[in-house]
Simulated scan of single mutants.
Amino acid sequence: MDLPLLIGALIVAALLFLALINIIKVAIKTAFTIAIVVFVLQVLTGIGPEELATQVGKIIGAAMGWVIDFFGGDGSEEAIEGEAMLWLFNYLGYLH
């Protein structure tokens, strides 16, 4: 095996590993932050996770509606993906 190839592969592997570790750290921090926000909302205002999820779904649905309108809803790939997301959120009960 060539030494430059081995060194290059080790560097790439190390960079990928560090990137993966950073992604995992960010995901854990985000999960804890969301948990704290949900807990504080529930304790201070009585708003439960279901109500919060419903509101988030409405916001995402409105954003997807804007995307469909922006791309014209003309059967393009972007519009079809947006319509599929709207259908999914509607099916899951997040949109009313």
Rank of each mutant, 00 (worst) to 15 (best):
M1V: 09
M1D: 10
M1P: 08
D2W: 05
D2H: 06
D2V: 01
D2M: 03
L5G: 06
L5A: 13
I7K: 08
G8D: 05
G8P: 01
G8C: 05
G8K: 09
G8V: 03
A9H: 04
L10H: 01
I11Y: 05
A13P: 07
A14Q: 02
A14M: 03
A14F: 06
A14K: 03
A14N: 01
L15K: 04
F17K: 02
F17V: 05
L18S: 05
A19E: 04
A19M: 04
A19Q: 05
A19K: 09
L20K: 10
L20H: 13
N22V: 01
I23P: 03
I23M: 07
I24P: 01
I24M: 01
I24T: 01
K25L: 00
V26K: 04
A27S: 02
K29Q: 07
K29G: 01
T30P: 00
T30A: 01
T30Q: 01
T30K: 04
A31L: 00
A31I: 01
F32T: 07
T33P: 00
T33N: 05
I34C: 00
I34M: 00
I34R: 02
I34S: 01
I34E: 00
A35N: 01
A35Y: 00
A35T: 02
I36F: 07
I36Y: 04
V37D: 04
F39Q: 11
F39I: 09
L41F: 12
Q42I: 02
L44P: 09
T45R: 09
G46P: 07
I47F: 07
I47V: 15
I47R: 10
I47H: 07
P49H: 04
E50I: 11
E50S: 11
E51V: 08
E51C: 03
L52V: 09
L52C: 05
L52A: 10
A53L: 07
A53Y: 06
Q55W: 12
G57N: 11
G57T: 12
G57Y: 13
G57K: 12
K58H: 14
I60L: 15
A62G: 11
A63S: 12
A63G: 13
A63D: 12
A63P: 04
A63R: 15
A63K: 14
G65C: 14
G65T: 15
W66F: 15
W66N: 14
I68K: 15
D69E: 12
D69F: 14
F70I: 08
F71P: 08
F71I: 11
G72L: 09
G73S: 08
G73H: 10
G75E: 05
G75H: 07
G75Y: 06
S76L: 02
E77T: 08
E77W: 10
E77H: 08
E77M: 08
E78T: 13
I80S: 10
E81F: 15
E81D: 15
A84Y: 11
M85E: 05
L86I: 14
W87Q: 10
W87T: 09
W87C: 03
L88Q: 11
F89R: 11
F89G: 10
N90E: 15
Y91L: 11
L92E: 13
G93F: 10
Y94W: 11
L95W: 08
L95H: 08
